[in-house]
Each structure stands twice: as structure tokens, then as C-alpha cells.
């Protein structure tokens, strides 16, 4: 994935509504109306989110002019999935190890 495309995927995923839309689409195709329903959002607001997801390559939309159902495209998600959660886990894990290690060092000093 090119740098620019990756940035688009990350910024698309940074929004909780868009992640919820993706979660809904994982269950199958849906129209804009169906997607708008659980969020109590206006259709234009949902359309805006869908455009962001479409530009990031995370969804595609059907050609049928009237319904244009949205479909999840999982490939870009797979590419970023191993980044997902890594940073927070990295620090929490490292710092917990450091707690233990500092304990050991201090016990060693006092004995």
C-alpha cells in the first residue's frame, strides 16, 4: 500500500462511527438508509462517512444508481491489522516489565 493510501486508511479508521459502519458491513451489504438507522444520523452525514471509507478502499458501492449498496473490502484492514493495538500494548507491556525489573534491582541493592 502506498504511503498516501495508508494514511487514508488510518484516518478513516480513526473515527468511531466509521468503525461501527465497517462492523455492520462485516455482516453483509447494506444501503445508506440501513446504515444510517442505528446511528440516528442524517443521510448526508452517513454519506460523508461512506465517502471517506470508499476513498480509503475500505468499502465499495454497487452500481445500481438507486440503492448503491455498500460492501466491506477487507484487504486494507488486513494490511493494517498487525499495527492495530501494538503501540499501547508495547508501552504497557514494557513498563510492566520495567516495574518488575526495578523491583529486582532495588532488592539486589538492599541485600
Amino acid at each position: 500500500m502506498a504511503d498516501d493510501q495508508l494514511s487514508k486508511v488510518f484516518s478513516a479508521l480513526a473515527d468511531p462511527t466509521r468503525r461501527a459502519i465497517l462492523a455492520r458491513l462485516a455482516d453483509g451489504e447494506a444501503t445508506v438508509n440501513e446504515l444510517a438507522e442505528p446511528f440516528q444520523m442524517s443521510l448526508p452525514a452517513v454519506s460523508k462517512h461512506l465517502k471517506v471509507l470508499e476513498r480509503a478502499g475500505l468499502i465499495t458501492r454497487g452500481r445500481n444508481a438507486q440503492w448503491r449498496p455498500c460492501r466491506l473490502e477487507p484487504a486494507p484492514l488486513r494490511e493494517v491489522s498487525h499495527w492495530v493495538g501494538n503501540y499501547q500494548r508495547f508501552w504497557d507491556d514494557s513498563y510492566q516489565r520495567l516495574d518488575d525489573y526495578l523491583d529486582r534491582l532495588q532488592q539486589g541493592e538492599s541485600s
Binding site: 480513526a14 484492514l77 491489522s81 492495530v84 508501552w91
Partner: peptide
Amino acid sequence: ASGMESGMQESYDRIDEILATA
């Protein structure tokens, strides 16, 4: 977006679920 912010962790766990489903 790589999950550094703890509040986002849950959301990203959901992406893993999305991937599993998809």
C-alpha cells in the same frame, strides 16, 4: 491509529472481529 490511545483499544479489537468475520 495503531492503537496507542487506550480508549481506542476496544475499537481495534472490533476490527480484529471484523476481519475474522470477513
